[in-house]
């Protein structure tokens, strides 16, 4: 049971970082980015493709991170340029189109043959509860916490943070105050793009996934973000870890093992109903 939980936490770190990115972007731009994981996967895969072409790993990693940031920034620019006050439908359409384009492009570029995925960090293994956990997983966990702390501080205590929050809540007012919202929102897109690529670069070597399976890590991440009401970074990060842990623990219980993929979602539905029990649904939205 304990070993199952620890094993699950390793996947949970990826869900947590992605959930934090999803929440941050949603809070700042109002866009629910379905392509958050695909974007990170694109950066990570680009890094492995370049490393496979004998580029030094650090350079390949930088190129991968930069590519994820630039692509995300471009989407931010498209949104700011053509959809300056987007409706909910438009935001969702842009997000879905972005996911489809990335999935198609990623599959064309990277295929699904196995790749050599060198680790950014030296190999190291810790044994916790009878499970060996790689050093990268621990670092990824640290990154998830650091991102959550960093973003909370940034939003609450800096000038840029306040402007960013204002931009999402009262975009017209902020524009009238002549704040450059376009640069801010492009920055938010690029920043979360780089972070998700970094997260997947840390998680990928332990899993060696395909581009497609990496891209769909966004589903548990979205579930975690939902638990945080798409606004609470801490709840989102914690929920990401919890979803991983529940999946891991269920795998070690006979009778539950076959349903473990669905189990976190059943619990999420229960949790949401409980959390919103005093509210009228329309009101809560």
């Amino acid at each position: 049971m304990i070993d199952g939980i620890v094993a699950g936490l390793a996947s949970g770190t990826a869900y947590a970082i992605l959930a934090v990115c999803v929440v941050v972007l949603f809070r700042l731009t109002g866009v629910l980015n379905f392509a958050q994981a695909a974007l990170g996967a694109f950066g990570a895969y680009l890094c492995y493709a370049l490393a496979g072409a004998h580029l030094p790993l650090w350079l390949a990693a930088l190129a991968g991170l930069a590519a994820a940031g630039i692509i995300a920034g471009l989407v931010g620019w498209v949104l700011a340029r053509w959809f300056s006050t987007p409706t909910t439908t438009e935001r969702i359409v842009v997000s879905v189109v972005f996911l489809i384009v990335l999935l198609a492009a990623g599959f064309r570029l990277f295929g699904d043959t196995p790749r050599v995925m060198p680790s950014l960090l030296p190999e190291g293994v810790l044994t916790i509860g009878g499970v060996r956990v790689s050093l990268t997983t621990v670092v990824a966990l640290g990154l998830a916490v650091a991102v959550a702390v960093g973003v909370s501080l940034l939003l609450r205590h800096t000038h840029v943070g306040v402007r960013l929050q204002a931009m999402s809540e009262r975009p017209m007012t902020v524009q009238l105050l002549r704040v450059n919202t376009r640069a801010l929102s492009i920055g938010a897109w690029a920043g979360t793009g780089v972070l998700s690529a970094l997260a997947l670069l840390l998680v990928a070597p332990a899993r060696n996934q395909t581009f497609e399976s990496m891209s769909f890590l966004v589903i548990p991440a979205l579930a975690a973000a939902l638990l945080g009401g798409f606004s609470n970074i801490w709840v989102a990060a914690g929920s990401g870890l919890a979803i991983g842990a529940i999946e891991g623990a269920a795998a070690r219980i006979d009778g539950l093992a076959n349903y473990r993929g669905a189990l976190p979602f059943v619990l999420i539905v229960i949790a949401l109903i409980w959390m919103r029990r005093r509210r009228v649904w329309d009101d809560a939205r």
């Binding site: 699950g8 009878g130 891991g248 795998a251 070690r252 093992a257």
Partner: peptide
């Protein structure tokens, strides 16, 4: 499930 983290199966 095919494509998921196989650690639980390996521990079993």
């Amino acid at each position: 499930v095919l494509g998921d983290d196989p650690t639980p199966a390996i521990l079993a």
